[in-house]
Nucleic acid binder design. Structure first.
Lengths: 210, 210, 210, 210
DNA sequence: AATGAATGAGAATTCATTCAT
DNA sequence: TATGAATGAATTCTCATTCAT
């Protein structure tokens, strides 16, 4: 048969309507995280994801009609978690010192880290609707900017945004520490922690001195 | 037991003996950089690289026996350039202020940047012998550490190494600025520059205060 | 890999550049005619066409990048033959009686018939660029109309066109006779022949009587 | 040896006992006509037919155990209608002129036409038991032959059959007119009408002249 | 040495049909 | 009985790599 969807939008996953389906979807997503993380988006195969989640390939496609749709769903879930985490953190900022905020951000990243590497793989993938990816990036930036605004008095929104971008980049480095030799990890972590603190404190100081 | 070399080391198959060959190789490598950058390692095809360099696919394989070998060669060339640049920079460090060194590092990254995006694509690719990649990373770190050692008096080698790692990560961010909206680029660049300076100056100060 | 041609035009076949390739292409096209005829466009598989022409599937795709492209090429070849045949016939019309022209048209169809059934399958297929199909239809109609114009004096172009359409439809019936029981074929053929003659003669008479 | 019935005859799985079921079946059949018409037999999917008739795929299969069975049922329904129409027409023939009969046949086809295109799709499909198709064809031919016999005095049964075949083919052309450009339709219709009349009248005349 | 043809494993995706709830 | 999940063979198409001229 000739494909009946010559130019279709990214295609959303069919929502499971029974308990069994929901379990399947969960299993698939977990397996997908693993495989994407191990191999990257391109090299990961739907077949392997199906196999690892003990799902027939047809069933996999029932819920995720496209490799891309699957990645998208994963990213969405991840984004949700990240967003929630940031929102939570933001609430606690008022009662924290700047250093504590810096540490909290680092801890937050560390918490997400298990999923982060796959997210990196997917976010960096070039194919597909960058739409979601952009929105995700934006959400992260807004979240971090929000925290910064609360943490540093009189920080202008524009600067908060810029700092958020830089900060997020730094935090990516934190996640990357996991790939280093075990012996070096502790020191590296400490160094990153210091740098993050330094960045926030310095920014705060610059404002106060004005 | 014989040493573990089951697979022939992926390297250039034939050293081009004649001028004609060297041109071919150069054309191929240039095309490869373009294609790898545009599509990423996996999505790039040998056929397209051949086409873009006006090379027959068979000829391409004469020079680079596998896709991986081609990537490796590219990486090697890139590493060489980076190394040379760093070495050069290192020589000039003694006559520079710390801030100038920070700026120079940023400028250096910017210079490499055109090739950097493809390098990122290749370095992040998981397949194949990480051997080269590791060596490349090591070289970069050593180079930057060397510069730091010369730039900051009494900096212990171990700390220089740690700082190099952190610094290199930051510099990657600098390269990433290119992907941002044009309107935001200048500010972001400035922010990164500040941060790099801040990092070096702060590290230097910490030592002096001891 | 993700496909690199998300929305590409029907894709033309790569022209073979060596003798071997040309033979391949011929073998493939012959096999394709057979398979399309036997199973129809949808049910025919590229795998089977490859197998029947003793071609590796990859080679098949080298020359015909799409199932559709293959069908298109077949149709083109067929159209060319039909066109040529009609053009030839047109030249001879002046020296023929009307009945002879009628018979010649029937014979012409019979000649094409071996390929006709597959062409029907392809022309009727819904997918793909109707462009070629339309052009083919138009060519046939023009050809037949030309013959009619030469065969029937004072026939107006517009009427010639209309008659051509009707005539071509009748001729399709002639081709369809092959599917009937052998015992009935001869009589059916004769009946169709008579009808075609009747049609032409009657049309001619109507003009003369004016 | 037992008679060759290896596969169960594809027929309605369950006669709907209740009103509800009958509605379902009707909805399914209607949707099926639409989808088959739009896409052709092969490209039509059971899933889509189910969706369009708001039927669960499982339910669809309760009523029609295979895709083929569904097609068969559709064809059967169509055949019934055609048969009835022809039978009705046959009764009226004695009081009609030959020309009127010709027109009536054309009108009859036009009436069926809405369903005809799908029927064409299915009749032309090669898969499955041609049994039904043959029977359908036979019924049509008999019906038309009957009409002819009544319309043309002294027409021998054998000739009636042959003429029926030719006539039916011509009538298919009438149905095909719908695909032509609107501007051309009227003229084409008239031409086909004339041809049908011409055919009947001429046949009648030939007999009388004997 | 250069070129383009050949190869075939493997990837994404579809869909008729069967099962379990 | 009705529903939606499960299944997996089959299909189109890709591409790194090898061969033959």
């Amino acid at each position: 048969m000739t494909p009946s969807t010559p130019v279709a939008p990214p295609a959303r996953a069919t929502e499971p309507k029974r308990e069994r389906g929901r379990q399947r979807v969960a299993a698939i997503m977990d397996a997908a995280v693993t495989v994407f993380t191990e191999k990257g988006y391109d090299a990961a195969t739907m077949t392997e994801i199906a196999a690892r989640s003990a799902t027939a390939i047809g069933s996999l496609y029932r819920f995720f009609p496209t490799k891309e749709a699957l990645a998208e769903a994963l990213l969405l879930r991840y984004a949700q978690q990240a967003k929630n985490g940031l929102a939570e953190l933001e609430l606690q900022v008022p009662e924290m010192t700047l250093e504590a905020v810096a540490d909290a951000l680092v801890d937050f990243v560390l918490l997400l880290q298990s999923q982060r590497s796959f997210a990196t793989a997917l976010v960096d993938a070039r194919s597909g609707s960058d739409d979601h990816r952009k929105r995700f990036r934006e959400a992260m930036r807004s979240g971090v900017a929000g925290i910064l605004s609360r943490a540093i008095a009189h920080l202008k929104p524009a600067r908060a945004k810029v700092m958020a971008i830089v900060l997020i980049h730094m935090l990516k480095g934190v996640a990357g520490v996991a790939n280093e030799e075990p012996s070096a990890r502790a020191v590296l972590m400490a160094e990153f922690r210091d740098l993050v603190r330094l960045y926030l404190v310095s920014a705060s100081a610059r404002i106060d001195s004005k």
